[in-house]
C-alpha cells in the first residue's frame, strides 16, 4: 500500500515520488518547469520552512503557501 503525505511532512532522507501538485494553474506550471511535477522522484534533504528537496539531480529550496501543496507517495523501504 502506498503511503501518501504532503511533501512538507516528509522526514529528512525520506524518498518518494510526486503523485499530485495542487495550487493555482500558474504555480503548478512554474513548478513543473523547474522539474517538480507528477511522477518525479523526490528526496527530503532538510525539512523545515523553507525546506530543501532533491529533485532528480537538482536541489530545490521550497516554501509552499497555503494554497499550494505537493503530495508524495513514500517509497517504503528506501
Amino acid at each position: 500500500m502506498e503511503n501518501i503525505v504532503p511533501l512538507e511532512l516528509m522526514a529528512a532522507g525520506e524518498v518518494g515520488h510526486v503523485v499530485q501538485v495542487d495550487g493555482s494553474p500558474e504555480v503548478v506550471h512554474r513548478l513543473a518547469e523547474m522539474g517538480l511535477r507528477e511522477q518525479v522522484r523526490v528526496m527530503m534533504v532538510q525539512p523545515g520552512r523553507p525546506c530543501i528537496v532533491a529533485v532528480g539531480d537538482h536541489r530545490l529550496s521550497l516554501r509552499m503557501d497555503e494554497k499550494a501543496e505537493i503530495f508524495v507517495a513514500l517509497t517504503m523501504d528506501a
Binding site: G23, L31, M34, I52, L60, S61, L62, D65
Partner: peptide, 12 residues
C-alpha cells in the same frame, strides 16, 4: 499579490 511559493534552485 498572492505570495507565490518560493522555489529556488541550490546549484552545486
Amino acid at each position: 499579490s498572492e505570495t507565490p511559493p518560493f522555489v529556488m534552485e541550490l546549484p552545486a
